[in-house]
Simulated scan of single mutants.
Amino acid sequence: MVETGLKKDIRKISNKELKDFLKEKGEKAFRAKQIQEWLWKKSARSFDEMSNLSLNLRSLLKEHFELFPVKVAEFQISNDRTIKSAFQLHDTHLVEGVLIPADDRMTACISSQVGCSLTCKFCATGYMDRKRNIEAAEIYDQVVLIKDQAEKHYKHPLTNIVYMGMGEPLLNYANVIKSVEYITSPEGLGMSPKRITVSTAGIAKMIKKLADDEVKFNLALSLHAANDEKRNQIMPINETNNLKVLIEALQYFYQKTKTRITLEYILFYNFNDSLQDAEELFKVTKKVPVKINIIEYNPIAEANFSNTKADTLDQFASYLENKGVNVNVRRSRGKDIDAACGQLANRKKEGNN
């Protein structure tokens, strides 16, 4: 539990603990519901905002508890209207999140870890150390802040959330699941879980845990190569979670949830973009119900990969479509501000405002 001196983080205590505290201080138990509503439905950033609580109760809360709201340290707006934000956490760590506007939707791309413990060779975050997991309330705050940006800049509500920012969500399992509860609960933001996608590099046992926990949100697997030799080269996690093990986990997830999985596939020039690669990817689609997002690569300074040619991408997608595969080509957004897929890396020095 985050504490400053003797003060506890109010967003990390249970409802029972809050009720017990209020009872001990001579306050009515129903105040707990009001406080929780301020925290999770109204997204209060300070106790002073809790206007239907007495001044005495607000003072009491300030005396015993802390609120650690995430702040926007800086943001940039891309030529294509994408907004990238550097979010500052209470301990001065920075993480990045992105608002991706489209004609019919507003998508928040949020982070689950400060840095990442996986070392995917094509991803800027993979070249950072993992400093810590992001707390559930801090993940929730990213959503709220991006939601506010959507409404302020584009007069459009937030419609979708993807856990595709910095970090591996399934290595911060408890906080990710808790954050989804805050976001989807009627006592929270009330968003539909079907509007949420959690993306993983492929942690088989945690994919099975998602299935056992009967999650209602969508699952995406960052595949990027459909044979073990190539996937080992770019995603070291594959050495302990190979394709056979991953496909078994995806089959288990589908059997339990009946939710079709998305396979994300970045096309790298002259590496995984041949028709043979497309055929290997097609074979995966025969083993578990999936749809495929083909993603343009966004080069980073740390890696030697480059984007495939436009006609190669078209041929690759057409090959799969002609075999009846549901394929969506995702064009890069926010490239000019390093906000595109795989580019999030805290260029700003941590701790600076």
Rank of each mutant, 00 (worst) to 15 (best):
Gly5Asp: 12
Gly5Trp: 05
Lys8Gln: 15
Ser14Leu: 08
Asn15Gln: 14
Asn15Trp: 05
Leu18His: 06
Phe21Trp: 12
Lys28Glu: 15
Ala29Cys: 00
Trp38Arg: 09
Leu39Phe: 13
Leu39Ile: 10
Trp40Leu: 02
Trp40Lys: 05
Lys42Met: 08
Ser43Asn: 14
Arg45Asn: 11
Glu49Met: 12
Ser54Val: 07
Ser54Asp: 12
Val70Lys: 08
Glu74Met: 10
Gln76Arg: 13
Ser78His: 01
Asn79Cys: 04
Ser85Glu: 10
Leu89Asp: 09
His93Asn: 15
His93Gln: 15
Leu94Met: 08
Glu96Asn: 04
Gly97Cys: 07
Ile100Asp: 03
Ala108Lys: 10
Ile110Arg: 11
Ser112Gly: 09
Thr119Gly: 09
Lys121Phe: 03
Gly126Ser: 09
Gly126Arg: 11
Gly126Cys: 09
Met128Asp: 03
Ala137Asn: 14
Glu138Asp: 09
Ala150Asn: 07
His153Gln: 14
Lys155Ser: 14
His156Tyr: 15
His156Asn: 13
Val162Leu: 02
Tyr163Met: 13
Met164His: 08
Pro169Glu: 12
Pro169Thr: 11
Leu171Val: 10
Lys178Met: 11
Val180Phe: 03
Ile183Pro: 08
Glu187Gln: 14
Gly190Arg: 11
Ser192Asn: 15
Ser199Gln: 02
Thr200Arg: 09
Gly202Thr: 07
Met206Ser: 12
Ala211Asp: 05
Asp212Ala: 05
Glu214Asp: 13
Val215Ser: 03
Lys216Ser: 13
Ala220Phe: 01
Ser222Gly: 07
Asp228Trp: 04
Lys230Ser: 05
Arg231Asp: 10
Gln233Gly: 06
Ile234Gln: 06
Met235Trp: 04
Ile237Phe: 01
Asn238Pro: 12
Asn238Cys: 08
Asn241His: 15
Asn242Ile: 03
Val245Thr: 15
Val245Pro: 00
Leu246Asn: 02
Glu248Arg: 11
Glu248His: 08
Tyr252His: 13
Tyr254His: 13
Thr257Arg: 13
Thr257Cys: 05
Lys258Tyr: 12
Glu264Arg: 07
Ile266Asp: 03
Asn270Thr: 11
Asn270Gly: 06
Phe271Met: 11
Asp277Ser: 06
Phe282Ser: 02
Thr285Gln: 03
Thr285Cys: 06
Lys286Ile: 00
Val288Thr: 04
Val290Asn: 02
Lys291Trp: 01
Lys291His: 12
Ile294Leu: 15
Tyr297Thr: 09
Ile300Asn: 03
Ala303Lys: 04
Lys309Val: 01
Ala310Leu: 14
Asp311Trp: 12
Gln315Val: 00
Ser318His: 12
Leu320Gly: 05
Leu320Gln: 11
Asn322Trp: 01
Val329Asn: 08
Arg330Met: 05
Asp338Ile: 00
Gly342Glu: 03
Leu344Trp: 02
Leu344Asp: 02
Asn346Glu: 11
Lys349Arg: 14
Gly351Cys: 07
